[in-house]
Amino acid sequence: MSFSFFVAAGFTVAGALAAMVLRNLIHCVLALVVGFAGLAAVYLQLGAQFVGLAQIFVYAGAVAILAAFVILLTQGVEHSTRPAAAMDWAVGALLACGVFAVLAWAVVRGVARLPIPAQPSDAGVHAIGDAMLHRFVLPLEVAGLLLTVALIGAVLLAMRDGEAGA
């Protein structure tokens, strides 16, 4: 556990928490960007350079902006005056704490049984590309198809009625 891990993890958790707690939806999305960037730093720290950069590119650059657009489209720029959380927020939080406790227990117990790993190689872009176009070529094609379908589907869904023929 290095210092850089704790910094990155701190940013991730703080961003995620703020995204789920803050009242203003746009603030939530901005906090989410911080969380995603922190997570990308964790990936970099793990030696997965490509995944970390893809994380920033896709999540911070695209998904967060998309969410912000949808917030503006659906409720305008006004502040929401409704309470941020439902009445049963305590129940939800308690449940989440329970889930975390179980997961943490399993992690600590489980990892202790694993052997200490050898020093691994890190993910070169070449190795990723090689794997993607040889062993994983079918999933790659399927993912491409899925993205195309999702693109068309999202456009059709968000289009206004009667605009389709235009």
Binding site: F50, A54, G61
Partner: peptide, 28 residues
């Protein structure tokens, strides 16, 4: 000299979009 330099370039550039959004939205 990153090995995924081109990807880094575009990823860091996409942060600019967030900044543009923040500037536009926060000014009211």
């Amino acid at each position: 000299p990153l090995r995924a330099g081109v990807l880094y370039f575009f990823a860091a550039g996409s942060l600019m979009e967030i900044a543009v959004f923040m500037a536009g939205w926060s000014s009211r």
